[in-house]
């Protein structure tokens, strides 16, 4: 097990190098650069040359890449081309916000999806099942920017309510922070809930058809034990896989919701970096998101061994 984890962590190195090269190449290929963003309409050849020299963009591309990666391996992700602020502390600050949003969304998704998914599989083809399936389909198919806008309009029209506009951290003021986070988390959670619900239902149905469930029931075990200890636990592998992927995706994938609700998370930082062609910011954010994604997946794989003792990585 320990060897496995070390092996997986070592695999991070080629993954991150690959990602960093890809980002570097893509940033070079896309039109526009940071200097034209800084100078706007005032751009002249002299000003451009000056800013390129100031930001080190006049050096050969290979040299630019290696000077960046050389610092990155020591944990120095460089400074933003625009503000001059170091990138890494800002990423950590933003990560906490995005992680909180992602976790809240997950909790909301689980609260909605798991009980309903189980219920739906047990009452297969009943009215409840049909309703749950329609709700799940809605959750999956309504784009979150649409539901976000509708919810904002609904609350403002019906209750004259708008969530606090000034962002406050979780540890500064718990109540206000929750008030800011709950709506966006609910929207993200409801989208996740749709697919988790569907996965729970189909996975449960498959397990419930197995012979050992019949054996458990024949043994006279109470229905509660049959469902939770035997059926649900054994059907949870694909659900955990799905949730793991969703958490990874939420790290950078909350950008639309962050923007609508003005939440200063990692997604918005990445987007601002991209639109300003702020290479150190984009590179830092994408690498960090890739890192989180890999770690979350590793945790999921480790979790498998607890859910299903037959799985082992030796």
């Amino acid at each position: 097990m320990r060897d496995y984890i070390i092996r997986r962590l070592l695999m991070l190195i080629p993954i991150l190098i690959g990602v960093s090269i890809a980002i570097f190449v893509i940033m070079q290929l896309i039109p526009g650069d940071v200097v034209s963003g800084i100078l706007g309409i005032e751009e002249t050849p002299e000003l451009r040359a000056m800013w390129e020299a100031k930001l080190g963009l006049d050096k050969p591309l290979v040299e630019q890449y290696f000077s960046w990666i050389g610092k990155a391996v020591t944990g120095d992700f460089g400074e933003s081309f625009r503000t001059g602020e170091p990138v890494f502390p800002e990423i950590m600050k933003r990560f906490k916000i995005s992680a909180e949003l992602a976790l809240l969304a997950c909790v909301i998704a689980w609260i909605i999806a798991l009980p309903l998914g189980i219920l739906s599989s047990l009452k297969r083809n009943s009215v409840i099942d049909r309703i749950v399936r329609v709700v799940a389909l809605l959750g999956v198919s309504v784009p979150n920017f649409a539901s976000a806008t509708l919810l904002i309009l609904f609350f403002s029209k019906a209750f004259n309510y708008y969530s606090p506009v000034k962002y406050v951290g979780l540890f500064e003021n718990f109540g206000t922070n929750m008030e800011i986070m709950i709506l966006p988390a609910f929207i993200l959670g409801s989208v996740m809930a749709g697919s988790v619900m569907r996965m729970t239902r189909s996975s449960m149905l498959e397990v419930l058809r197995q012979d050992y469930i019949k054996a458990v029931r024949a043994k006279g075990a109470p229905e509660r034990v049959t469902i939770f200890r035997h059926a649900f636990k054994n059907s949870s592998i694909p659900i955990v896989t799905l949730i793991g992927m969703q958490i990874g995706g939420l790290m950078g994938g909350t950008v639309v919701i962050e923007q609508i609700f003005s939440i200063p998370g990692l997604g918005q930082y990445t987007l601002t970096g991209i639109s300003q062609r702020d290479f150190p910011v984009v590179q830092g954010c994408v690498l960090f998101i890739a890192f989180v994604y890999v770690i979350v997946n590793l945790l999921v794989d480790i979790l498998y061994t607890y859910i299903d003792p037959r799985i082992s990585y030796s």
Binding site: I152, S156, Y161, V165, Q259, I260, S262
Partner: peptide
């Protein structure tokens, strides 16, 4: 306050935020 979304901006004004 940065409210990039136009309908969110208007809702914020309407509610007095």
């Amino acid at each position: 306050y940065v409210l990039t979304d136009a309908s969110a901006r208007l809702a914020a004004l309407r509610t007095g935020a």
